[in-house]
Deep mutational scan, measured.
Amino acid sequence: GAYRMKIYDRDELRGQMSELTDDCISVQDRFHLTEIHSLNVLEGSWILYEMPNYRGRQYLLRPGEYRRFLDWGAPNAKVGSLRRVMD
């Protein structure tokens, strides 16, 4: 299947937008971000990790809009890595 997600540095799907279609071992290295404040999962399911290298707390992201970090259940906006959930 296809995988696509848009990430934003501000809440409510605002601010600088970056797009992912594959795994990202370090959000900071690739996008120069340490925080993601909202996101829109367009295709596929993903796991968001608090730390790089797929470590730390993890949150399942199904397709849909997440307008603030509380929407995916996190206590803050800190994001380290993102990985696709393969079928």
Rank of each mutant, 00 (worst) to 15 (best):
F69N: 11
M51P: 01
Y54S: 03
R14Y: 10
M5K: 00
L60K: 07
M5S: 09
Y3S: 13
I47Y: 09
R84F: 02
A74N: 02
T21W: 12
H37V: 14
I25V: 12
L70E: 11
D71I: 05
E12H: 07
E19K: 10
L60D: 10
D23V: 00
E35D: 13
R55S: 04
S45I: 14
P75R: 04
L70K: 15
V85Q: 05
I7M: 10
K78G: 06
W46T: 01
Y3D: 15
G73H: 12
A74T: 03
I7L: 13
L42V: 13
S81M: 00
I36W: 15
S38A: 11
E50M: 03
D11R: 08
K6S: 15
D23F: 01
E65P: 15
G64Q: 04
S45Q: 10
P75C: 10
L42P: 10
R83L: 05
T21K: 04
M5Y: 00
H37Y: 09
D11C: 04
S81T: 02
N76G: 08
L42A: 15
S81E: 02
H37I: 13
M17L: 12
Q58W: 07
L13I: 15
L33V: 06
L70S: 13
L33S: 09
L60Q: 08
S26T: 15
V27N: 09
N76I: 10
N53P: 00
S18L: 08
F31P: 14
A2Y: 15
D71R: 04
M86E: 11
K78S: 06
G56D: 04
R10L: 12
H32D: 08
R10E: 13
M51Q: 12
T34H: 06
L48F: 08
Q16W: 08
T34M: 05
I36N: 01
R62N: 11
I36S: 06
Y66G: 02
L13Q: 15
I36D: 02
T34K: 15
R57S: 04
K78A: 07
V79R: 00
L61K: 01
I47H: 11
L70M: 13
C24R: 01
E50I: 01
L82R: 00
G56W: 02
W72F: 03
D22C: 08
G44P: 00
D29S: 14
E43F: 08
M5P: 03
E19R: 06
R84L: 05
H37M: 06
Q28W: 06
E12D: 07
I36V: 07
L61I: 09
R62Y: 07
D29E: 11
V27K: 01
K6W: 07
Q28L: 06
W72E: 01
E12W: 06
E43I: 03
M51G: 09
M5F: 02
R57M: 04
I47M: 05
G44W: 00
M17R: 10
M17D: 13
L70Q: 12
I25F: 09
T21G: 08
Q58N: 06
Y54A: 02
L60F: 11
F31Y: 11
I25H: 06
R30L: 11
V79F: 14
E12L: 08
M86Q: 14
Y66C: 11
L60S: 09
A74K: 02
R30Y: 10
S38G: 04
M5W: 02
Y3F: 13
D23Q: 03
D23E: 12
L20D: 01
R4Y: 14
R55D: 05
Q16R: 08
G56F: 01
L13G: 15
A2M: 13
S18K: 14
G1I: 14
R67L: 10
Q58P: 04
V41Y: 03
R83K: 14
R68Q: 10
D29L: 15
A77D: 08
R68I: 13
Y8N: 06
L70D: 11
N76H: 04
M51R: 10
R83D: 00
G44S: 04
R57Q: 11
F69K: 13
D23A: 05
A74F: 15
Q16D: 11
F31T: 12
N53C: 04
P52E: 13
S81Y: 00
E12T: 08
L39R: 00
P75Q: 09
A77L: 13
L42M: 14
Y3A: 07
I25M: 14
Y59D: 02
E19S: 12
D22N: 07
L42R: 12
L39T: 04
L48W: 05
R14V: 10
L61E: 00
L13E: 14
H32G: 12
Q58E: 14
A74V: 01
L20K: 00
W46I: 02
G56M: 00
A74M: 06
D11K: 15
L82G: 01
N40W: 06
D23H: 08
Y59P: 00
P63G: 05
D9L: 13
K6L: 10
Q58Y: 03
Q28R: 07
D29R: 07
R14E: 09
D23M: 03
D22Y: 06
K78P: 03
R30W: 04
H32S: 07
Q16E: 09
G56H: 01
E65A: 12
T21V: 07
V27L: 12
H32Q: 07
V41W: 02
R10T: 14
G73P: 00
E43T: 09
V27C: 11
L82K: 03
E12N: 14
G64F: 02
F69S: 10
L82C: 05
R67F: 04
R67C: 07
Y59F: 14
M5D: 02
E12V: 11
Y54F: 09
Y54R: 01
C24V: 06
L33R: 08
Y54H: 12
K78R: 08
G56Y: 00
L42K: 14
C24L: 11
D9M: 14
D23I: 01
Y3G: 11
M5H: 00
E43M: 12
E50F: 01
D87Q: 14
M86I: 15
L13D: 05
I25Y: 11
N53K: 12
Y8D: 00
V79D: 00
L33P: 13
E50A: 04
Y8Q: 03
R14C: 13
D71F: 11
Y8S: 13
V79L: 08
M5A: 15
Y49M: 01
R4P: 00
R62I: 03
I47A: 08
Q28D: 10
L33A: 09
W72A: 02
V41N: 12
R14K: 15
K6Q: 09
F31K: 15
A2P: 05
N76C: 10
I25R: 04
Y49W: 04
E50K: 02
L33Q: 07
I7A: 14
G73N: 04
Q58V: 03
L60H: 15
E12Q: 08
P75D: 04
R55K: 13
D29H: 15
Y8R: 01
A2L: 11
S45H: 14
V79Y: 03
R83F: 06
P75E: 10
G64C: 03
D11G: 13
S18P: 14
G73F: 15
D71M: 12
R68D: 07
D87A: 05
F31C: 12
Y59Q: 14
N40E: 09
L33M: 12
L82Y: 13
E65C: 03
S81G: 02
R84N: 00
V41S: 02
W46Q: 00
M86Y: 11
W46E: 02
S45F: 13
R10S: 11
M17W: 12
L60I: 12
T34Q: 07
E12I: 15
S18A: 07
L61C: 05
L60R: 12
